[in-house]
Design a protein around this nucleic acid. Sequence first.
DNA 1: CTAAACCCTG
DNA 2: CAGGGTTTAG
Length: 743
Amino acid sequence: MPDHDSAALLSRQTKRRRVDIGVKRTVGTTSVVFTKGRATLFSAMNPHGSEQDVECSVVQHADGEKSNVLRKLLKRANSYEDAMIPFPGATIISQLLKNNITKNGGTEPSFQGSGLSSTGSEIHQEDACSNSSRESPQECLSPFSRPTMSQFDIERLGDEHLRAKRARVENIIRGMSHSPSVALRGNENDREGAPQPPSPRESYRENKRKQKLPQQQQQSFQQLVSARKEQKHEERRQLKLQLEDMQKQLRQLQEKFYQIYDSTDSENEEDGNLSEDSMHSDGMDHQAQDSVADRSDNEMSDLDPGHFIDRARALIRQHAMMTEKPKRDSQRGKDQGPASMHTEGKQLAETLKQELNTAMSQVVDTVVKVFSKPVPQVFPPLQMPQARFAVNGENPNFHAANQRLQCFGDVIIPNPLDTFTNMQMPSSNDQTEALPLVVRKNSSDQSSSTPTPVGHHHHHPSLHPSPLSATVGFGSPSFRHPFPLPLMGYPFQNPLGTPSGSYSGKDRVSPESLDLSREATSLRTKMSSNHMNHRSCSPSYPGSTTEGLSLSLIKSECGDLQDMAEISPYSGSTISFFKKKKKNRLSPNHLKKAKLMFFYTRYPSSNMLKMFFSDVKFNRCITSQLIKWFSNFREFYYIQMEKFARQAINDGVTGTEELNVTRDCELYRALNMHYNKANDFEVPERFLEVAQITLREFFNAIVAGKDVDPSWKKAIYKVICKLDSEVPDIFKSPNCLQELLHE
DNA sequence: CTAAACCCTG
DNA sequence: CAGGGTTTAG
């Protein structure tokens, strides 16, 4: 885990550092892996800054005419030529160029117009590669340090490459002397008159080399091609193995999935869909891709559970179809020779991409489903690891997928050798799963968004076995629950408030908790529809399948994890399971509890409310309702105070010392009747004091005539709000009512 | 602008 | 008590 993080961090830092080295960024749309490769390439190519960039641009853009003009200018001003000559990075080129310049009498830039300008950039690229291959061949060959190529090969190739490049450079130089423009201007004569005219012998030798070296180049090309073919074979074999492995896991997931969600319902629906799909079996590739894309674009935007479930099922169907495809592909690959390896590799890549899309979607779904359920807000110790699990790839399967992704990346990573074999690389846009990025982002966001702990509780819903792990038990270790789920009974408050006291023992298994799945199913519809109403935060996520899903994960995890659980595709059964305990509505018992709490606190903060009503699922509605309750309590309280104060004034009371609040006074009875109707709660003495103070405040204010001010009560409020006392911890317990009233 | 408080009404 | 309108502090 730390390794994973630090490694990724390192690579990111490396990436950034490299990208930042002087090289203008090309296009920001390339995938991570590809960008990294390019960054490496560029940094190797341009180790000394941007001088080469200038040269490069000149090479690329100068056409014949311009170079002619330039040459004229340069002929007159040799100082500029001096500025151009130093070639810090490319030692060989600079050597050759210098030599040639001296040979040509300072007509160095003319090679740009020699008809080779179109290949100028290519020259540079090859040069860069050979340069870096001299320094650190690994880096140039592959950022992922492909182990299949021996060091010898690398050196040999680098050497051949170097020689080939040298030949090209010399060709260029030669071309300079034979360039049309030069010939047109009778440069032959100029050269004859040059300070160091090349001897005819030298010229002859160069001619020979000019013809010979490209042949060497071609030979090396052939060798490279065959080597690459072997390599590709090996890669393909490994990829197939991995693909099979992945398919196996996916099948297991699929089985579990059906077991869980489709065992009871929708068998007919499933059949119908399957037959429908079989109709399109020939256009399957497009079918799968399109549906994935469409879903990510459209359906992801309305994330109600029903759609999610549908989507998940569709994904599984896609997978079922796609398990057939790779076999066909591999067969085709064997039948056809190496000539088709090119397209073969691309097809394999496409297949893998689809597989990975599906696999990742399912994995993410599963992770979300399983680990978003336990309520995080009130149980930090469990919430943290689970959250990290969900987003950071602690899941072994997640790791596996990541590795496969890397492996997959290996296939399409632009390898410098590919320039020889003219291997057509898949567009970087094809790689839709920028997974490491997503994960990274996710985890970083996650770390900064951990909900604040809200106190501890003796027992908690999150300790309950999730129906998934408890009843099913994934066959694959990949999908096993990461932490043990103790079978603890939870003495939850039942909805009608009747005491469930017989189960209050914390170490006993509640019979209800064992029989929840049945009720959960029946509650599914109700709950999901109930929560869709205040799903105002239901986001719409753009992007591709995996990314969209991951993004939804990110967003949800950053926000309310409970809300996110509701968005989750499988919220139906699992959520309602917890709803049993974590209710989304305030019961009459809660009202009663709130009233009793009012004896201690008149101005509870929302945090306090959450703390003391930990058995309700807090959302905006619940919070405001509780606040409204206390607002109403206060309203009644102050009304009573004002009423009795005025009454006292009317009764001829002159001083506040005559105003006492006792347990037998009218005021107290009124208040007690309101907040403690059953009179089964012993009102704390402190409340009497506060009530007395309030009464006197009102009395004084009225006597002083302050009540003419429309906001004259606010001063009193300010005083009273400071008189809140601690609410006993017993109120934090969900069954405080039983425990309180039984005293 | 929003959440909360305040005020009123049903 | 809940709901709605208004005011106000951040």
